[in-house]
Design a binder for these strands. Structure first.
Length: 482
RNA sequence: GGCCCCAUAGUCUAGCGGUUAGGACGUCGGCCUCUCACGCCGAAAACAAGGGUUCAAUUCCCUUUGGGGUCACCA
């Protein structure tokens, strides 16, 4: 048996996701239990979506949870670099091998042609690349590439036969008719690999023994298996965990439109990392003996794959709150005091608040009522219910307007006063509202009050996650009222 | 829509042929109590449907239904 080596491979495209934490937990636990290694690899091959501060946020979030990695971009390791953007040469060399052995081929199709093809396929009810470039003789393709023509490298999927593999969490063998598999793009025209190529190469080179990932990857597994074969490699073992899902009627995979998904939301609204981890562990896995409160260490002791259940668990905030309550109560007074200080009752946080409220204070004790909403999570909006109104706008209009503001800042980088100010101004224009009509709505939703420190500064201090959550919650609440 | 995965209360789950179908969250009652919370006690609440297999199916098989994923030069 080769040593156990597992990994998580998040892409730095935004706030660290609870789904990442959840998958990380199972990888971590399995690695620790088997005396293996847990690797963190950053999948940043999408230049359009990668965000600079995002990688550090992943580190911070995982550290906060106490899930540490043995190898990674920050700690190094025998298979460095662990950042895919720094491994471009490796992928290109490997793509060249595929070109040489017929496992892959160059495709010169333009995005326009591909788009046209897709439109036609809609009518014909077909999918996948039509393999036009697969018929180009290798010598001609080489010449065109040498000539500077832009191309991608595609996987040459066998024309007939069946691919089979084992999913360790499911009975029997998985198999797929190759005719249902697309000639996946492996190397993009910018010379960087797609997920599929980078993933296979890295997992192989980094000697990953068990790929533990979410079910959304299950349908691309045959492509991966084929890619391993094209290189002449043996695929690792695959474990596809179910997907975390939204609550209510909408049981789609968990998303920020429906649920707070940033790990930082949970940290900032006062959840303890051990409680979050414990809660996450009970999603799709059970400890046994009707026990559901346990530590990471205890989980590592008893963990086994046969206690994984495959139904997609709904992420239930009420139950998370219960777990957290249990953990809070377990702390001694000293420990709880320290937790509170570490959370927001500390100098750093107060230093952000003081400039916002100092002119509104007469005595020191005014600080508490003035800043209360900086310390609370979800707000009770009923006391200000009748304040949520704009002349001529229905409840649905108000809901849409608030959501429009959220969508607008969602597309922007950073979280600064300037950005919010800009988004706000454009939003007012779009709503055709005056300042006095529009902004009170946002203020009410984010602070639960008619009066507060300046809106943008308040949002900045509150943080993006809590702001988003409050706005969305307010929008839903308004939209649902009579 | 094609392909694939999944299916025990509203939610998370136990169960791996014979159980009064267990636990937890939430909900509702009650006790405790100066209030509230905690805590304690109790209640309502589930095997999606139809066929098989079997002496016996929640459990095994098939079909249907339902839910989900995926069909990008995003991961």
């Amino acid at each position: 048996m080769p040593p156990v080596r597992v990994r998580i491979a998040p892409s730095p495209t935004g706030d660290p996701h609870v789904g990442t934490a959840w998958i990380a937990l199972f990888n971590y636990v399995f690695a620790k239990q088997s005396g293996g290694k847990f690797v963190l690899r950053i999948e940043d091959t999408d230049q359009n979506r990668a965000r600079a501060d995002s990688e550090q946020m992943i580190f911070d979030a995982l550290h906060w949870l106490g899930l540490s990695w043995d190898e990674g971009p920050d700690v190094g390791g025998p298979h460095a670099p662990y950042r895919q953007s720094e491994r471009a040469k490796i992928y290109q060399d490997h793509a060249a091998k595929l070109l040489a052995n017929g496992g892959g081929y160059r495709c010169f199709c333009t995005t326009e042609r591909l788009a046209k093809m897709k439109v036609q396929q809609e009518l014909d009810k077909k999918t996948g690349y039509d393999r036009l470039c697969r018929r180009i003789p290798a010598a001609e393709a080489d010449a065109r590439a040498a000539n500077g023509e832009s191309f991608v490298v595609r996987l040459a999927v066998p024309l007939e036969g069946t691919v089979t593999w084992k999913d360790e969490l499911r009975d029997g063998e998985q198999s797929r008719d190759v005719r249902d598999i697309d000639d996946q793009v492996l190397l993009k025209s910018d010379g960087l690999p797609t997920y599929h190529l980078a993933n296979v190469i890295d997992d192989h080179l980094m000697e990953i023994s068990h790929v533990i990932r979410a079910e959304e990857w299950m349908s691309s597994t045959p492509k991966h298996v084929l890619t391993y074969r094209a290189f002449g490699w043996t695929p690792p073992k695959f474990f596809h965990m179910p997907l975390l899902r939204n609550a209510d009627k909408d049981k789609t995979k968990i998303s920020k439109r429906k649920n707070p998904v940033s790990i930082f939301y949970y940290r900032d609204s006062g959840y303890l990392p051990q409680a979050l981890l414990n809660f996450l562990a009970t999603m799709g896995w059970s400890f046994g003996n009707d026990r559901e409160l346990f530590s990471l260490t205890e989980m590592i002791e008893v963990f086994s794959w046969d206690r994984v259940s495959l139904g997609g668990p709904v992420f239930d905030l009420a139950k998370l709150a219960h777990f957290n309550e249990q953990y809070v109560h377990k702390l001694s007074d000293d420990e709880l005091a320290d937790e509170l200080i570490g959370w927001r009752l500390n100098r750093d946080y107060f230093k952000q608040l003081v400039p916002l409220v100092r002119n509104r204070m007469k005595k020191l004790d005014d600080v508490i009522p003035l800043t209360e909403f900086f310390f609370s999570g979800d707000l009770d909006l009923t006391p200000v219910a009748d304040q949520f109104k704009v002349e001529g706008a229905s409840n649905i209009d108000l809901k849409k307007a608030i959501l429009a503001f959220v969508e607008a800042f969602e597309t922007r980088d950073g979280w600064t006063k300037e950005m919010l100010e800009d988004v706000g101004a454009k939003w007012l224009d779009a709503q055709k509202w005056t300042l006095k009509q529009g902004y009170p709505l946002l203020r009410l939703a984010t602070t639960g009050r008619k009066a507060s420190p300046p809106l943008w500064e308040t949002m900045v201090v509150l943080g993006k996650e809590i702001t988003r959550r409050r706005l969305r919650r307010a929008a839903d609440w308004i939209g649902a009222r009579k």
